[in-house]
């Protein structure tokens, strides 16, 4: 009789149970991480959001008091607007827009030169964030010899302090240059996996390079495009470290403050040590809820279930 591994392992109910047991053993590490680093913090945040906890760490339950306060918080609406502006502008111009542009541009030129270009775009990602932010701050200084002012002086413009004059521009550039690399890597991989014959067929059929991009390449990378859009929306929604490092929400009152940063400021960085853990946690909870709702919307609208079932690039 020939040895059949399948038969051997799942021949009776005992081995079948054992088999299932293994399943959980292998899933345990990742489940553990999700519980410890996501589920427990979310529950804690939600619970703290129901208190007016401060530096004394007392659980003073106030029910939905914080949430009612958010509705009355005149800054909350401005900050919500800021967040939406920040997320969608960075997403459109950099995390998806620029990423797509670089991927297409670098796959249509000599492969070696393309790789070099893409490597350069990875540098912001591998630079420590404080160093990276500092470089931008230097480049955007108000002095005439800073990089920005030197560049604009070529066109005869006067030196300005970029952080004070165009804070949003700086915030979006700083985040965008980091955020581009993620989409760039995924789009490039997707573009490179398009079988050569599709491109050749299109060329023979009379398509120009732009038409090949428009009619063949873009439709074929539709799924990676949707995935990066969804993933980066959620990622930008909760990001604040570079804004903290560059403008800290300023200049002035909440000019570039986003929701996640507001939550951080209230919870950990109030002047004079007035910390509002409770209120900050409530704000963070709302962010989690928005994130979850958007995930579900993306999942449904972009039909990610299909994406996971079968490969979308057919050979």
């Amino acid at each position: 009789m020939r040895f059949s591994p399948k038969k051997f392992f799942v021949s009776n109910s005992f081995t079948r149970k054992l088999h299932k047991g293994y399943l959980y053993v292998f899933l345990l590490p990742s489940l553990g991480f999700i519980v410890v680093f996501f589920l427990i913090p979310v529950i804690l945040t939600f619970l703290i959001g129901l208190t007016k906890m401060d530096y004394s760490f007392r659980w003073d339950w106030i029910g939905l008091g914080n949430y009612i306060y958010i509705l009355r918080d005149k800054w909350a609406y401005k900050i919500l607007g800021n967040t939406l502006f920040y997320v969608f502008t960075t997403l459109a111009f950099f995390n998806v827009g620029m990423a797509l542009f670089i991927s297409i541009a670098t796959t249509h030129i000599n492969d070696k030169i393309g790789s070099i270009f893409r490597s350069i775009w990875l540098l912001p990602r591998i630079t420590p964030s404080t160093v990276y932010a500092l470089l931008w701050l230097w480049a955007a200084r108000g002095e005439a010899n800073s990089l920005f002012n030197w560049l604009t002086s070529i066109f005869g413009l006067h030196p300005i302090d970029w952080k004070l004059t165009y804070p949003w521009l700086l915030v979006i550039l700083v985040n965008g240059f980091v955020g581009t690399s993620f989409g760039m890597i995924i789009f490039t991989a997707a573009l490179k996996s398009i079988p050569e014959d599709y491109i050749r067929a299109a060329k023979v059929d009379g398509a120009s390079t732009l038409q090949i991009i428009r009619y063949v390449e873009l439709p074929l990378i539709k799924w990676p495009l949707l995935f990066v859009t969804a993933y980066q929306t959620l990622s930008l929604l909760t990001s604040y470290e570079y804004i903290l490092l560059v403008t800290d929400g300023g200049p002035g009152l909440y000019t570039t403050e986003v929701w996640a940063l507001y939550s951080y400021h209230l919870a950990f960085a109030q002047y004079g040590g007035i910390v509002k853990f409770g209120y900050g946690a409530a704000l963070a909870t709302i962010l989690v809820i928005i994130g979850l709702i958007m995930s579900v919307i993306y999942w449904k609208v972009f039909r990610f279930r299909e994406l996971m079932v079968e490969p979308k690039i057919e050979v």
């Binding site: 014959d197 050749r200 067929a201 060329k203 023979v204 059929d205 074929l220 690039i313």
Partner: peptide
Amino acid sequence: PKDRNVGMVFQSYALYPHMSVFDNIAF
């Protein structure tokens, strides 16, 4: 290639998966 007026059939057929048969032929 576009000015050579050649028609080509590939071993893989190279039919665009996102287009219907009509759109493939009409391309």
